[in-house]
């Protein structure tokens, strides 16, 4: 059922939800952008709808809740260790259709990639529910339609989008219907808004021949990419992490194990004992990242990892476009196939 709400009415809904849930949503952080007097949109806890940034795509993804940038897993002393305490309250995460598709990818990696679930991921995942932010229009660099992620999958409690004079919410979770109905100024049957076309169109190759790994299409990126890792840190589906075992400086017998975000794009990734480094150049790193997003992951799990949110393209300081790279990849694959055909003839 769809409800129309005023800002005050929606705030009363959020207040009521706040009794059972923390609310985690995209927030405009004024002055916290990279450059002087610029802003950034990233996730944080909110208590009113005014705090939720609905007009812009978030620069950083919701995943920081499920896979924190820095998380202490446990503390250790001589022979004992203690798991770090976790927030006990449930959380409603406000996200868009592409991001809800991304949750499936995160779950895949942390819960269904091998025999063991990730215990820490499971601990936070079980507390999380979702609210869908409708997308009446595509943002710059979005290519969800190309990745078939423009329509949200099931798994959201209610949706939210702004109208000229208030908000519209579709309530999927029957237990919440009453809460919304009590504050609504109108009721109507509608679906959450979703886009059906993007300016950016990406063509993902169906399969990738081994020859692509040595292809010259990657070479330019070694000079262009600065290996900062923003593309992967802002990506809602990137899951890589590394560990820091920290021994407190004033007592070397006590410390903690921390899990921190890692990036296949940043120097140091793929370093191994003995000084080996499997991917040295930026072009090797980009090749791995791109193929992982639109090929390798699909080979293992049957669907593409990339959800087409375009944050990587939004944030790249060197104007390297992932979308353009995938299209170059598709063209290169076609050209290789054509060469093979002509060689056969």
């Amino acid at each position: 059922m769809g409800f129309e709400l005023s800002r005050e009415g929606l705030d009363r809904v959020l207040t009521e939800l706040g009794e059972s849930y923390l609310l985690y949503a995209p927030v405009l952080k004024v002055g916290e952008g990279r450059f002087t007097d610029t802003d950034v949109v990233r996730y944080d806890y909110v208590s009113s709808v005014e705090q939720i940034e609905l007009a812009h795509k978030s620069d950083y993804a919701f995943k920081e809740l499920l896979t924190p940038l820095s998380e202490t897993l446990f503390f250790f002393t001589e022979n004992e260790c203690k798991v770090a305490d976790a927030e006990a309250r449930k959380v409603i995460v406000f996200l868009r259709a592409c991001d809800l598709h991304a949750v499936k990818r995160l779950d895949q990696m942390y819960l269904a990639n091998g025999p063991q679930e990730d215990w820490f991921y499971r601990r936070v995942r079980d507390r999380v529910a979702f609210a869908l932010i409708g997308c009446p229009e595509s943002f710059d660099n979005c290519f969800c339609c190309s990745m078939d992620t423009n329509v949200a999958p099931e798994g959201w409690l209610f949706s939210l989008e702004q109208t000229d004079d208030g908000y519209r919410c579709v309530v999927a979770d029957e237990q919440l219907t009453e809460v919304f109905a009590a504050q609504a100024v109108g009721e109507a049957a509608f679906e959450p808004a979703h886009v059906s076309a993007n300016d950016t169109v990406v063509r993902v190759p169906e399969s990738v021949p081994v020859a692509i790994y040595q292809h010259s299409m990657w070479d330019e990126y070694t000079a262009r990419c600065i290996k900062c890792g923003r593309c992967t840190i802002s990506c809602p589906t990137c899951t890589c992490y590394t560990m820091q075992d920290v021994f407190y400086t004033d007592n070397g017998c006590v410390g903690e194990r921390r899990r921190v975000g890692a990036s296949c794009m940043i120097d140091g990734y793929t370093n191994v004992a003995g000084g080996g480094q499997y991917r040295r150049t930026a072009c090797e790193r980009i090749r791995f990242k791109v193929l992982h997003k639109v090929h390798d992951f699909r080979k293992r799990f049957g669907y593409d990892m990339c959800v087409g949110c375009g944050r990587c393209d939004d944030i790249c300081p060197e104007y390297i476009s992932f979308a353009a790279c995938v299209n170059k990849l598709a063209d290169a694959v076609d050209a290789l196939a054509a060469q093979e055909v002509s060689a056969d003839e």
């Binding site: 940038l69 900062c228 840190i233 820091q244 921390r258 921190v260 975000g261 990036s263 140091g268």
Partner: peptide, 26 residues
């Protein structure tokens, strides 16, 4: 809480500025 210890700030401070940053326990 937002730091992943990538050390790019440390390296760039050293290369472009005065080297005022260091890493302690990650």
């Amino acid at each position: 809480a937002r730091c992943i210890g990538c050390e790019q700030c440390v390296n760039w401070c050293k290369r472009r500025s005065v080297g005022a940053l260091s890493v302690v326990n990650g």
